[in-house]
Design a protein around this nucleic acid. Structure first.
Lengths: 290, 290
DNA sequence: CGTGCCAGGTGCCCT
DNA sequence: AGGGCACTTGGCACG
């Protein structure tokens, strides 16, 4: 009943992963023709473009384990819903008593345990894990494990209300607008937004303290360091800018006059006080038209 | 077809949420007796302890919308799998073309869109949203919306391969070991781990720059500020400690001698350089027995 | 509600 | 593999 993740052994490139998944869809249909001696509350065959679904309601532990193991083996996205306990040990350790949760096993090795509350999973495992679905003492046990760091997630079901395996084909990638990168582009194409006469000279300029977002000169030829934030900032951003300014002052000359400007939609009160204390400046700018 | 979230209107306390959900389970059973003129590939009735599951494979858009809307209304955890586009607009904005994804709508108003890759959802909405499941131009459209900030997530399905609603009862809370709080407890009960003669005087002591993790005195009566981190730290933590030390030096007396000690498993090279530069110290400690 | 900060943060890019 | 940092960060605790 041990399982193997295609996504890991098949290669880490997205295209390889996608290929696995599209073949999975066909494999699903072949599999369905086989008599398995199980109740047919599985997925009905469909001509739907999105095919490749295996489902089971209130399965036995064995049925759930078979479906989950098979799905993992085929590179499907597997979901389980039922009453379970969850134990994690790795960078930290955690215990979670019996309750109803939704478990998702991804073909890239990620595992997610969701309760009915919160955006974040109550427990998880990052991509790159091995999913193992087995029967232990008549119950379904799902274990996701990885090395470096050594981490293991063990989900013990007392009952499974639903098990499903989905063959997913997703060629698209997300396109986001309104990030810090957009703010950078905006400033580079319209430097006067920072102040009249500002000339950007480099981005990601390296200093002993790290890379500066935008490095340039003001109208008087003084060195200017910009730290960009896409949202309202607190003291941490001031510390970051301060480190860069100090590093550049050391790096250039002892008497170098380096201006540091924090560019963000707004600053908190404490951050503003820190800015004043360090002799740093602030310019209000937002990524997009907002 | 508009929906309403029980978890939001019913109150924000966990116990209230749980009460809603347990009643939901009963409501599910009542509902199931009603003839609805739909194919019965829904969940079979079961005596299983984890009950309250409605499932539909390859539903029509209307069937999926009905199941999802009904589930949301009843405070269930709703999942959809199918081919869809996703548009988000709020703090930022994003577009995602057609692909197979898994959508989860939680009774607390959270929404998650997962592809077959990655631990993180490709799109999401935090708790507190209103989920709306409707038919638009023959297709299922799910919209999760919230105000303050104004944010909306729109999922347009070209086809739905699977729809499900789960009544979840989860009375347990997660117990984690190995956090910064554990490290704090460890130091408070064994201050000599930091250094011989160290005496903690306060935790979360307020300074103009923020609250100090542990505040105390060394064997010579000098003020000591501890900044704790559960894992290996970078320059940010040094900046944090530095801010506290500077603030305390100002706050006490101009000539106050304040020591700053970073307590963590280890530090990066650049962080170590920053520590030396600022005259701060480092003590290696880990939350648990690790 | 905003401010500040931890998190098993995750993800991305770089060396 | 490790470092540095952005993120629609999320989540919590506190004023």
């Amino acid at each position: 009943m041990s399982t193997r993740s295609w996504a890991r052994s098949g290669g880490s490139t997205p295209s390889a992963g996608r290929w696995c998944i599209s073949t999975t869809s066909a494999a699903f249909k072949r599999e369905r023709a086989l008599p398995r001696g199980v109740r047919d509350d599985e997925a009905v065959e469909a001509t739907h473009p999105t095919d490749g679904v295996r489902t089971r309601v209130n399965p036995t532990a064995s049925e759930a384990a078979e479906l989950a193991s098979d799905g993992v083996d085929r590179g499907a996205l597997v979901t389980l819903f039922g009453r379970c306990t969850v134990d994690y040990e790795g960078r930290a350790a955690s215990e979670l008593g019996l309750g109803d949760r939704h478990v998702m096993l991804k073909p890239d090795g990620a595992a997610l345990v969701h309760t009915d509350e919160g955006q974040q999973p109550v427990n998880w495992q990052p991509p790159g894990c091995e999913h193992d679905c087995r029967i232990d003492d008549q119950h379904l046990v799902v274990e996701s494990h990885r090395s470096s760091p050594e981490e293991s997630l063990v989900i013990r079901f007392s009952s499974v209300a639903h098990a499903a395996a989905f063959a997913a084909d997703d060629p698209e990638s997300l396109d986001v607008v309104g990030t810090e990168a957009d703010l950078k582009e905006r400033i580079l194409s319209s430097p006067e937004l920072v102040e009249s006469g500002f000339r950007p000279l480099a981005t990601e300029r390296e200093t002993p303290a790290g890379a500066v977002d935008i490095y340039g000169e003001d109208r008087d030829g003084r060195t200017v360091v910009l730290e960009l934030k896409r949202r309202r900032v607190g003291p941490d951003a001031v510390g970051q800018l301060s480190r860069y300014v100090e590093a550049l002052q050391r790096d250039l000359h002892a008497d170098a006059d380096v201006r540091g400007i924090l560019v963000a939609p707004s600053v908190t009160e404490r951050a503003e006080a820190l800015l004043a204390e360090k002799g740093l400046e602030f310019v209000s700018l937002t990524p997009q038209g907002k």
